[in-house]
Simulated scan of single mutants.
Amino acid sequence: MMVRRHVVMLPALCWNQRRRDFYAVTADVSTEGIRFRSSSLLAIGEDLTCSIRHVGTLEARIAQVAGQEFVACVRGGRAILADLARQFVTLARAQDLQPEPIRAHKRIVPKQKIVQVTTASGQAFLGHVLNVSASGVALLVDHELEIGATIQVGHKAATVMRHFAHGVGVAFTEPFEPAAVHEAMSF
């Protein structure tokens, strides 16, 4: 029997109690589960929490692993799974199925994880750095920031590019030199 797959590419942030946050991208969804691609090496049976753009946060268990791909089965009742299936199929139909561009800059997790974030209106608060690259940073924040908003991350001007559960992805107005991105870097 052939399994029908719905190709849908959505960025995801995944984690569990034993593994720090890592990024993945959905590849497709089927009755087998959600197929992801990630540079993290995972194990069958591992439980994950995944925050998937446009879908939300899901609890899942890894059912298959093949190289840098894994299939996760979502935990939940029939109504939850039916609603998720509808969401994924709708998103798959809405996408033009062009793959996302390959990231030009390597991401790292710096030792300095707390950084001051300042809005254009001067409001300042602390953010938690998940990871940083020469071109941007992923931050956990407790404040609403609109996509397109100009902010300061430490001393770097940036623009809010995307939202994820409890955080934002921002692009620096002027990227760091790639050699300046290392664990001991500061903002």
Results as ranks from 00 to 15, higher is better:
residue 73 C to K: 12
residue 76 G to V: 06
residue 103 R to C: 05
residue 117 V to K: 02
residue 142 D to Y: 07
residue 25 V to L: 12
residue 6 H to D: 11
residue 17 Q to L: 12
residue 171 A to W: 09
residue 102 I to H: 07
residue 7 V to G: 10
residue 33 G to R: 02
residue 149 A to F: 11
residue 13 L to G: 03
residue 79 A to K: 09
residue 108 I to Y: 10
residue 172 F to W: 04
residue 36 F to T: 02
residue 82 A to P: 00
residue 82 A to H: 04
residue 146 E to M: 06
residue 21 D to S: 08
residue 70 F to L: 12
residue 137 V to N: 05
residue 18 R to M: 11
residue 124 A to M: 15
residue 80 I to A: 15
residue 137 V to W: 11
residue 158 A to H: 05
residue 82 A to D: 15
residue 75 R to Y: 11
residue 94 A to T: 00
residue 73 C to Y: 11
residue 171 A to M: 06
residue 81 L to V: 07
residue 63 A to M: 07
residue 77 G to L: 07
residue 99 P to A: 13
residue 138 A to N: 07
residue 44 I to C: 06
residue 105 H to C: 06
residue 139 L to R: 00
residue 46 E to A: 09
residue 105 H to T: 03
residue 104 A to G: 09
residue 48 L to T: 06
residue 126 L to S: 13
residue 80 I to M: 14
residue 133 S to F: 11
residue 35 R to K: 09
residue 3 V to A: 13
residue 23 Y to E: 14
residue 163 H to S: 01
residue 118 T to R: 14
residue 141 V to Y: 09
residue 15 W to P: 00
residue 109 V to H: 05
residue 98 Q to T: 08
residue 77 G to E: 08
residue 147 I to M: 10
residue 174 E to A: 06
residue 143 H to Y: 13
residue 31 T to N: 05
residue 10 L to K: 02
residue 26 T to R: 03
residue 38 S to V: 03
residue 51 S to H: 04
residue 144 E to R: 05
residue 121 S to W: 13
residue 150 T to A: 15
residue 36 F to D: 10
residue 148 G to K: 02
residue 175 P to Y: 10
residue 19 R to P: 00
residue 112 Q to D: 11
residue 134 A to D: 08
residue 157 A to K: 14
residue 11 P to V: 02
residue 3 V to R: 05
residue 6 H to T: 02
residue 156 K to I: 04
residue 153 V to M: 01
residue 20 R to Y: 15
residue 131 N to D: 15
residue 170 V to R: 00
residue 12 A to R: 01
residue 71 V to Q: 07
